[in-house]
Design a protein around this nucleic acid. Structure first.
Length: 648
RNA sequence: CGCGGGGUAGAGCAGUCUGGUAGCUCGUCGGGCUCAUAACCCGGAGGUCAUGUGGUUCAAAUCCCAUCCCCGCAACCA
């Protein structure tokens, strides 16, 4: 019988820099699902890869003094090596610079253009110089750049657009008729309420502001922008070429699941399905938006110095230690957290103490009491039935949870089973049975049951910690049933065969020693960097300006007369300030850091000649000076500073 | 009144749909065991289940109402 196919993908990682553990989580999750599906007998195709085009990479390459291709070759290679290190079993690692992908994307673009879904608008548009992006009239926010809010200049630009609106009704219908299409469920409402139901805007699908991308074949000034280029990897990887469809494509498409981060759900549940509809291809079965791994309560970022990398963690915890941590710590809906303390705790508790030690004591008793031969069980008594039942339950529930992508809950189930097995040892006290010659049969039953529990655990945990599970199964000896279904049959382990020697699977980590070494390493790294202030990364520096340029900014001392929150805005405060010669209203995004009372009566520096903007319905005439990106501190002036005096 | 999720022991979570002794993991305290990786097992302490001396009910963490707070998405840091 033909195996049922299962096609899953991760998002392709942007090849701008080394991915941190949060990015790596996604491919580990996908790998666990892929391995599980293979165990269940599916013909699995697992796709991952890198997204390598775009402005940012072009810039980074220039800074690094290499060509964009050289740049992405290096980063993509690094990403791939991390994926490999994590023992992920992808079938293809696609790069958007692969020739087959580029050709296919080009053909897809052409096809969409030919059929009228992509049109060129030669219009008088708006261009934002700092963002190097152009916008349509409707995209502007209050006449300003929608990305940065700065002034835009009028340009005559041509851009290609995709007619999103045309397909929106069909997509809404599809989403409503396919309850599992967007997962988790709560995300579905976000997409519908925020984007689809209010009305979709046509999407800009080409750029002229940079060159590093797939050129539009019939209009070489334009490169195809990220949406079409990146999203299409899911079909081009299978040999979809626009007109011809490869064998893999016919076999595996549509995808059973796209596993992606919750931040790009919008592209995968709106733009991508519409693109497919336009191509006349079936939609993926499911888009699963997983949560994020946070470092403590913060998002990982270089500036916070809290970035953890999968390969460095693997040096300390082993590959399976890292895999297990991210899979078990990541809930289904909420963001998970990662820290060394938590990792050590989880590693020790679950892997070393619960699983590793169970294997160790079971094997050593089998060795000691039965010369390393798997004993034959006799009659069932005492807690045997309960152990057997919990194994059956673990198998059943694990299967259910994995089928619905609740990996951490699935793993929990197995560890509960292992805890029960450890307790079973205490209840049956094999060492006491061993002292009594009459109890040899009973002792054999107990150890057989334990070995069997270990076998089942190894099969179930295989998708999460494959290398360790393979080791356990091989330690159990030759011809040990290792297929998934056999984990549902307690008693499948053949008797009388020799088992191997028990290895330490997961050596305990001494938290204190670990943290000391970590501190030492970090100290060494700082020394190697040769600076005392390595904690402070050098910021991006701007070109020098002359005095006149600076003086074109009109800074003056102003006093806050009144402050109040802006309705419907979380970050904004509306300030009424006095310059001595006039009063103005200024809107400032400092609501999270200052209360109105803290500001009233204070003197601060105001940029007076900034063009007015409207923010959340309030017109702002100027800007107050403040420091910081994430933690904002207002620059207050001395009380003696005269109102309205020029600052320079 | 933009849309959605959530507030349960020191931490992280389950339980809420289908009301009926408040549970799990970690931590903590005490005990047991010795096969094992100072591991494993048992027991204790610790919660007015956000608030409302609100409603429904014989009975509310659970259903209804109001309020407060947090977090996503959207809007927004001039």
């Amino acid at each position: 019988m033909e195996k049922e196919k299962f096609y899953l993908t991760t998002a392709i990682a942007y090849a701008s820099k080394k991915p941190h553990i949060g990015n790596t989580y996604e491919v580990i999750l996908a790998d666990a699902v892929a391995r599980y599906k293979r165990q269940r007998g599916y013909d699995v195709y697992f796709l991952t890869g890198t997204d390598e085009h775009g402005q940012k990479i072009e810039d980074l390459a220039r800074e690094a003094g290499v060509s964009p291709k050289e740049y992405v070759d290096r980063v993509s290679g690094e990403i791939k090596s991390i994926w490999d290190r994590m023992n992920t079993t992808y079938n293809r690692f696609i790069r958007t610079t692969d020739r087959d992908h580029e050709e296919a994307v080009s053909a897809i673009f052409k096809k969409l253009y030919d059929q009228g879904d992509i049109y060129k608008d030669t219009y008088e548009g708006w261009y934002c110089v700092p963002c190097e992006s152009s916008f349509t009239e409707t995209q502007l926010k209050d006449g300003k750049c929608p990305d940065c809010g700065r002034e835009v200049t009028r340009t005559k630009e041509e851009t290609y657009f995709f007619r999103m609106s045309k397909y929106a009704p069909a997509l809404i219908k599809h989403i409503e008729e396919h309850p599992g299409f967007i997962e988790p469920e709560s995300r579905k409402k976000e997409m519908l309420n925020n984007f689809l139901l209010p009305g979709l805007q046509d999407l800009c699908v080409s750029r002229t502001s940079f060159k590093w991308g797939v050129p539009v074949s019939f209009d070489e000034k334009h490169v195809i922008y990220v949406w079409i280029d990146a999203l299409c990897n899911y079909i081009t990887a299978l040999g979809y070429g626009g007109t011809e469809k490869g064998e893999l494509y016919r076999k595996y498409w549509p995808a059973n699941v796209h596993i992606i981060g919750k931040d790009i759900l919008r592209f995968h549940t709106i733009y991508w399905p519409i693109l497919l509809m336009a191509l006349g291809e079936p939609l993926p079965e499911k888009v699963f938006g997983h949560p994020w791994l946070l470092s403590g309560t913060d998002k990982m970022s270089k500036s916070r110095g809290n970035v953890l990398y999968a390969d460095e963690l693997a040096d300390k915890f082993g590959v399976d230690g890292v895999r297990y941590y991210v899979l078990s710590e990541m809930p289904y809906l909420n963001d998970g957290t990662i820290s060394y303390e938590n990792m050590i705790k989880r590693y020790n508790t679950d892997l070393a103490n619960n699983l590793g030690n169970l294997v160790s004591r079971t094997f050593s008793m089998t060795e000691k009491y039965f010369g390393g031969l798997i004993p034959t069980p006799a009659g069932e008594e005492g807690p045997d039935g309960e152990l057997r039942e919990i194994c059956a339950k673990a198998y059943r529930v694990f299967t259910e949870k994995m089928d619905s992508y609740r990996v951490s809950e699935a793993l929990d189930e197995v560890f509960e089973m292992l805890r029960r097995a450890n307790k079973y040892i205490d209840e049956t006290s094999p060492w006491a049975l061993a002292k009594n010659g009459d109890m040899k049969g009973r002792l054999g039953t107990v150890l057989y049951n334990l070995l069997e529990t270990v076998r089942i655990a190894a099969i179930l945990l295989f998708p999460a910690i494959p290398a360790s599970c393979e080791k356990i199964l091989s330690m159990l000896g030759q011809d040990v049933p290792a297929d998934y279904e056999s984990a549902g049959h307690f008693g499948a382990l053949p008797t009388g065969r020799p088992i191997g020697k028990a290895e330490i699977l997961f050596a305990r980590i001494d938290e204190k020693k670990f943290m000391e070494e970590l501190a030492k390493e970090e100290g060494a790294a700082e020394k190697a960097a040769g600076k005392e202030n390595v904690a402070q990364a050098r910021p991006e520096e701007l070109p020098k300006i002359d005095y006149d340029a600076f003086m074109s900014v009109e800074l003056r001392c102003a006093k806050v007369l009144d402050a109040e929150p802006v309705p419907r805005a979380k970050k904004l405060l509306k300030l009424t300030v006095d310059l001595g010669y006039e009063q103005r209203t200024v809107v400032s995004g400092i609501a999270k850091f200052y209360t109105c009372e803290q500001l009233k009566g204070r003197k601060l520096a105001l940029v007076c000649n900034l063009k007015p903007v409207t923010l959340c319905g309030v017109e702002s005439n100027g800007m107050i000076l403040a420091s910081g990106e994430e933690e904002i501190r207002v620059l207050f002036l001395d009380d003696e500073t005269p109102l309205g005096s020029r600052i320079r």
